[in-house]
Write a protein that binds this DNA or RNA. Structure first.
Length: 476
RNA sequence: GGGCCCUUCGUCUAUCGGUUAGGACGCUAGGUUUUCAACCUGGAAAGAGGGGUUCAACUCCCCUAGGGCCUACCA
């Protein structure tokens, strides 16, 4: 029993804490991945908290999108999702405690006064301090609105960051930040600290846009006498041009990557190597990633999104993926392609049989659909340009003779068809190209496809003979 | 304006004072070849600039330049 309690105290607990103002974008996905990996590596827990204290900007669709994105990516969180907003009473309680202990105070400045104060502070190159931090609250105007501000410390601040190292600020850099708004609703920096403390979060991996917040938050931890978590601020992801990530180049939701045909494990693997490394290893299974992930591999410099590399990594994972699963995943991508046969069962059958060969040839599910298209394309094909040109008289005559051979053979399988084709080319005294090119044209209609023997084996005798017949002069 | 963070091939990165600065993507030459891929072999390609410290600096320190973040009663 006691050991269980101690275990809980020392257990690694991380969290992902997005604000629900949009979907799960690529940067958030990586942050979540790192927190998830770190927790799983240590046998700890990974929690999900929605930072919805800004009611005006928080939406349920966004909350759903974030959960869907994480689920799709395979980043499962422990316990129930925590709504920060629902914990507002607790945040207020802590704010009052800090007022009582002198670490916070009521500030009665109105908006104009604050603006003037801020402008003065700006000119002096320091952060805003409220005059009310030292005033007797008894002098407060009766019934006037106020906010609760934190009493910024007078000592310099040092934060030990697991990625950035020691980061220092002079005391004057910290303002008396608002803890409770005039409507007594808690603000971000208060809520984060209280929640992370209450949730026993031990390690906070987040974007380095929060680095300064770490200093502010550390002050609150110290004021409350709470143990500070380990902070790890990772650099942001930039666009391919090195500029801030915009929707134009990749600041898309996880579902957009799904719709482009990337596998969750492919995106995970790519994201893993963006800002983290483990020697020269590029390809990771989940087990390898969990075993290898640690803070030491985290990088300090920002990285850019590279869709080409994502595709390359994804290709590896498609080649490794289970055939049945790929058949299912490729279906929606196939639906977008025109002119297919109607027999769904037949389509599924052919694709299933061809999948082992197809999956080594595609970087995305969209490409996989392109690779599979020849299997389900409706006859007859319209051959144009180069394809039609390949079917000259000589080629047609040759295809005719091949047709006869195919009718006669009784071994309709990959290996037998391969040797049949080879022997046929020899008997015709021509190179394989003279046979293969026209045959490929009539069988695939120009669509990408694997080895011809395999193509014939998967298509089946009737379909193969039919496709050949379609392109030869009538009367054959 | 102030503060903080960052800077190795085009891109992702290895290097943790001594290496011909390695790998991967992309690019490129060639091979294989029945399309498209894949695959195999080879190639081009990097320490932002300037000062130090040191026998020795990509690595440590300083300055400059460039980039980023924060500077809200947003998160």
């Amino acid at each position: 029993m006691i050991s269980q309690v101690q275990h809980l105290k020392t257990m690694i607990r991380t969290r992902f804490a997005p604000s629900p103002t949009g979907f799960l974008h690529i940067g958030g996905a990586r942050t979540a991945l790192f927190n998830w990996l770190f927790a799983r590596h240590h046998g700890g827990q990974f929690l999900l908290r929605i930072e919805d204290t800004d009611r005006a900007r928080s939406t349920q669709p966004a909350i759903d999108a974030i959960q869907d994105g994480l689920s799709w990516l395979g980043l499962d969180w422990d316990g129930d999702l925590v709504s920060q907003y629902s914990r507002a009473d607790r945040h207020v309680e802590i704010a009052h405690q800090m007022v009582a202990s002198g670490h916070a105070f009521r500030c009665y400045c109105d908006a104009d006064e604050v603006d003037a104060l801020r402008a003065a502070a700006f000119d002096e190159g320091r952060a805003l301090r409220s005059p009310w931090r030292d005033r007797d609250p008894a002098n407060a105007p009766d019934g006037a609105p106020f906010v609760v501000r934190f009493r910024a410390g007078d000592a310099d601040m040092l934060v030990e960051d697991a990625v950035q190292g020691e980061v220092r600020w002079a005391a004057k850099e910290f303002d008396d930040l608002v803890l409770l708004r005039s409507d007594m609703s808690p603000t971000y920096n208060l809520a984060v600290v209280v929640d992370d403390h209450d949730m026993d979060i031990t390690h906070i991996i987040r974007g380095d846009d929060h680095l300064v917040n770490a200093g502010r938050q550390a002050q609150i931890y110290d004021a409350m006498g709470w143990k500070r978590p380990v902070f790890a601020h990772i650099p942001l992801i930039h666009g391919p041009d090195g500029k801030k990530l915009s929707k134009r180049h990749g600041a898309l939701g996880a579902e957009a990557y799904r719709d482009m045909g990337y596998l969750p494990e492919g995106l995970r693997n790519y994201l893993l190597r963006l800002g983290w490394s483990h020697g020269d290893q590029e390809i990771f299974t989940d087990a390898e990633a969990i075993a290898a992930f640690d803070m030491g591999g985290l990088n300090k410099s920002p990285s850019r999104l590279d869709l080409d590399k994502l595709s390359h990594i994804n290709a590896h994972h498609i080649a490794q993926a289970d055939d049945a699963r790929l058949c299912e995943l490729v279906t929606p991508f196939l639906e977008g392609l025109d002119g297919q046969i109607d027999d769904a069962a037949l389509k599924a059958d052919r694709i299933r049989n061809a999948m082992p060969a197809l999956k080594t040839r595609a970087a995305t599910l969209a490409e996989l659909a392109q690779q599979a298209y020849f299997l389900v394309k409706a006859r007859p094909f319209q051959l144009e340009g180069k394809l039609a040109k390949q079917l000259d008289e000589t080629a047609c005559a040759r295809l005719n003779r091949l047709f006869t051979r195919l009718v006669e053979t009784d071994a309709w399988n990959d290996a037998a068809l391969a040797s049949l084709l080879k022997q046929f080319a020899e008997s015709e005294s021509v190179g394989f190209g003279k046979v293969g090119q026209p045959l490929r044209a009539v069988l695939t209609g120009g669509a990408p496809a694997p080895d011809l023997a395999l193509v014939m084996a998967v298509l089946g005798r009737d379909e193969v003979l039919g496709r050949i017949k379609d392109q030869l002069s009538p009367g054959i």
